[in-house]
Structure formats: C-alpha cells, structure tokens
Design a protein around this nucleic acid. Structure first.
Length: 468
RNA sequence: GGUCCCAUCGUCUAGCGGUCUAGGAUACUGGCCUCUCACGCCAGAGACACGGGUUCGAGUCCCGUUGGGACUACCA
C-alpha cells in the first residue's frame, strides 16, 4: 500500500479553534496510525486577513496539543511560482481563460439572476473572448457544463453533483494570487497528499476541485469529510458559544490530554471506550469509525475528562503545570516538595488547573481569611476551651503526622463526648477559612506544626473576641 | 431561493435485519463511604423525529415529510 500522506491546512486568520484542532487531530492520527506523513500548510493567500500573529498562535496550539508534523509548515504565499506554473498548463490547454469582468459587474449580475429566480452563477461572459493577461483581470476555470461529478467520500459515501450547478470559478485573482480552490488542489497534487480529511463545510467545494484534478490530469486523493462541531444551539461552533480557541482552554487550566481525548471522541468512537491515551488513539483511530452526523461540543464532558487526567497525572507534573497559574495569583513562594504534597490532596477535587490554583490558596498564603458564613457557624465562643486544649495537645505532638493527628483528634472527641465532626469543622475553618477542603489530618500534616498552631491561635483570638 | 449533508437518552455515542423489553459515557436524582467537600462504589430516571414501503422480521434497507446544518466570493 502506498504511503498515506495527510495534511492540515489552516488559514491564519485567527487562532486555532476547536473545529480546526479536531480536523488536524484526525489527519494527524490517521497519518500516525498508518505510518504515513502529516504535512502542515498555511493557507495565507488572503493577504487582507492573514496575520503573523495567527500563524504563531496556530503553531503554538499544535505544539501544545502534541501534534507534530513531518513537513512544513509550507506557506502558500511562498509558492506563487508553483501556482503560476500549474495555471499556465491550464491556460495552454484552453481549460482556463482570462476574464475582465469587474467584481461589481459580476456581483450585480449575480443579484439580478437571483432576483429573476435563477442560479447566481458567473454567466461565462468572457469564456470565449480570448483575452490575454492584463491589469484587473482574473483567470477563470472553464468548468464542464454537462455531466455528473461524483465524490466517493470515505465518511459520507457517494455524493453526486451535476456539473451544470457549477460555474467558472476564479483560479487567480486580479492581484495575481491564487484562490483557495485552486491553491488547495495544486498544493495537494504537488505535495502528493492522498487523503484529504477536512470539515464537511467543504463538501460543496469538492466537485470543482475534482474537476480541477481532472483538468490537471492528476490522480484523485481519497476524500473524508468529517462533520461539523456545533454549539449548544446546534449552529456551527463559534465565538458566540464561548471559548473556541484551543489556547483559551490551556489558559483555563485544561490539560492537552483531555482536549485531545475529548476531540477524538467527538465524531469518532471505539465501542464503549471513553478514555484513550495518545498511543491508544494512534493504534485505534481509523476513518471507518468516524460518524456522519454533526456533534455538539459538550463543555461538561470535557471537564470530566480533564478531571480524570488531573487525577491520573503524577502530582509532580501537575505541580509544574500549575506554577504559571500560581504566579498569576502572586502567592508566596514555596518549595516543590511542599507544593507537590498540597497538589496530591487537591487532585481528586479539582477539574481544572484554575480551580486548583484557587483551591490551593490556604496552603500557600500567610494568613487565611474566614468565609463569614463559615466563621459564624463554626467559630463560636464556646469553642475557646476546646481550642485551647487542642493547641496544647498539638504543641506537644512529636512526630506531627497524619496518622498520629487523627488518633489525637479522635481521642479528644471521645473525651469530650462529641462526634469527630464537631471539632473537625471548626478546625477546618480555622485552617482553611472555609468548610470544604481536603482531609483535615493531611492538611494539618502538610501545613506543619508552626502554621497550624499560628492559625489555631488566631482562631482562638477570634472566638474569644466574639465572646465579649 | 438553489445545491449538498445529517437525524438513537439533554449531550457524546454503541448498534452495521432477528441476541434491542436499545448498551456505555457525561450531566441529573437517590443511596453507600465519610471529619467537610470531592473521589470511588451502587441504584434510578432518560432516546430509536414522523409517515409510508421492502421483509417472516426494521433503530438497522428504500422513499417521502418534518427538523437541523453547511455551501452558494477575486474568504478559506
């Protein structure tokens, strides 16, 4: 079997979004699965909207998601001579022609046709004028007007198009740059791309492209049009639906493993399996298990996957990834070992790194602030005595460790004739400021004797003040 | 308007004519665990859009209806 060659060809007119990322992922996975080649190509022929910044952002996102490419990035604007060469072949064969209709005229005639209830196609006015190159002139494809073009899509099956529906599309703009439909074909032909995997918003472009392949006498690639990703309102996912940029997910504290896993399962499935490592994805991914219908992007499920990967990853790695988020919050510095222990207790409790960076606050700040409700409910005046005795007990404890601490607390609760929770909750508030936290004894162990005693004494002062 | 695509729980999906009184995941609800919150475990509720065919038999095949989506540029 010939080597599989796929490509991802974004246009640098914005950030890499969720939909593009999935298209890239499917191409990447397909190539890796088949031991093929994955090419990255930047389609920057729209000089108005393409930006350097977007290119940077797309490359960053590809890298963050762990999708490496074997060739490229190629830039279409650096391949202008290639398009001219191919265009000349078409011109020489009479399969393309110059056209001097102004954009305004074409648009006006289009509107008129529409109003008259006809198809808004280019009317072929310059088809046989025999025009040569000149300022303001474009080159159009002499599109066959009879016959049927069939697209044998790997995902959707056979789709037929009447050539009479198609018109003479522009191949080269008046500024000399190729248009998308032409550049994409020339690139895929010259780069020997044999599997074109892209969003199904391109289905209607495909017959023209097939016709161009034929005009160029180039072998046809296999096409696979993957369904769109929709927002909750079932329209094409866009900024309106919230974060759609891949890097926005990084900033929100998502792990690339989670996003990759989620995106892979959106539109593709493998029996009942939900969790896939990158390696498993490469082993198991194939086009025959890609569904034909559009899917809604479900933030909740992504969150669940992210929580899964946060729990699963070694604490040391999570701690490292967490640092930038900590820096945003200006917490005091702590050593890695301490951070790692704190992270361990938070892993089952946080769905994103942002959540974790918030939750870890009490471990890192000098003094905690009490949540007013929590303080009112649990730091009551009658706690003064128990707190005093607790402080005494803890002061004398050596070693100051989780297991011993738990025993001491249980003993104390028993002596007082109350349930453990009765003293655990006030202490929790004293140490963390809130009523929900990791296990009390692991917290005490990690915070260390000095911090714990300091916070307990502050709590004692607080309850004593309330007593007056 | 025209062309094209799509249609199983709210969402992602399994299902490739009989084993489907439709399975899994997520979200939701209840319970267990428990020092709180999570995690985890158990249980529950929840779907084949509709109408015709084909067939001994249809979620599965065909047609239509309805609904949704995409495209219709000198954007990609």
């Amino acid at each position: 079997m010939e080597q599989v060659i796929t490509r991802f060809a974004p246009s640098p007119t914005g950030y890499l979004h969720i939909g593009g990322a999935r298209t890239a992922l499917f191409n990447w996975l397909f190539a890796r699965h088949h031991g093929g080649k994955f090419i990255l190509r930047i389609e920057d022929t729209d000089r108005e909207r393409s930006t350097e910044e977007s290119i940077r952002a797309i490359l960053d996102a590809m890298q963050w998601l762990g999708m490496d490419w074997d060739e490229g990035p190629y830039y279409q604007t650096q391949r202008l001579d290639v398009y001219r060469d191919y265009l000349q072949r078409l011109l020489d064969k009479g399969l393309a022609y110059y056209c001097d209709c102004s954009p305004e005229d074409v648009e006006r005639r289009r509107q008129e046709a529409l109003k008259a209830g006809k198809k808004p196609k280019y009317d072929g006015r310059c088809r046989d004028k025999g025009l040569g190159p000149g300022p303001g002139r474009v080159v159009r494809f002499r599109c066959p007007q009879v016959g049927t073009t069939v697209l044998n899509d790997l995902i959707k099956g056979a789709i037929e198009f009447e050539n009479s529906e198609l018109d003479d599309l522009v191949l080269q703009r008046s500024d000399g740059y190729p248009t998308y439909n032409f550049a994409v074909v020339v690139d895929d032909v010259s780069m020997k791309v044999n599997y074109v995997i892209r969003g199904d918003d391109h289905v209607n472009n495909t017959p023209r492209q097939i016709l161009l392949y034929q005009a160029l006498e180039a072998p046809l690639p296999r096409f696979a049009h993957v369904p769109m990703i929709l927002g909750p309102d079932r329209t094409r996912l866009s900024k309106r639906h919230g974060a759609t940029s891949v890097m926005a997910y990084k900033d929100q504290g998502y792990l690339p493993e989670a996003l990759v896993n989620y995106l892979a399962r959106l539109g593709w499935s493998y029996g009942d399996q939900e969790i896939f490592s990158r390696q498993e994805l490469i082993e198991k991914f194939d086009l025959d298990r890609v569904g034909a219908s559009a899917g809604v992007f479900d933030q909740e499920k992504l969150l669940w996957l992210n929580a899964h990967y946060i729990k699963e990853k070694p604490a040391g790695e999570i701690a490292g990834l967490l640092k930038p988020f900590l820096a945003q919050r200006n917490y005091p510095e702590h050593d890695d070992a301490y951070l790692e222990r704190a992270v361990t207790t938070l892993q089952p409790r946080c769905r994103t790194l942002q959540e974790m960076a918030d939750a870890i606050a009490f471990y890192l700040v000098e003094e905690v602030d009490y949540d007013p409700k929590a303080a009112t409910k649990f730091l009551k005046p009658e706690l003064a005595a128990p707190l005093r005795s607790l402080i005494e007990t803890l002061r004398g404890m050596e070693p100051f460790q989780e297991e011993e601490l738990e025993k001491a607390f249980r003993r104390m609760a028993e002596e007082m004739g109350v349930k453990l929770g009765k003293i655990a909750q006030p202490v929790r508030v004293a140490l963390t400021g809130v009523t929900a936290s990791p296990g009390l004894f692991e917290i005490i162990d990690i915070l260390g004797k000095e911090t714990v005693l300091r916070r307990l004494e502050k709590a004692l002062e607080f309850v004593e003040a309330r007593a007056q």
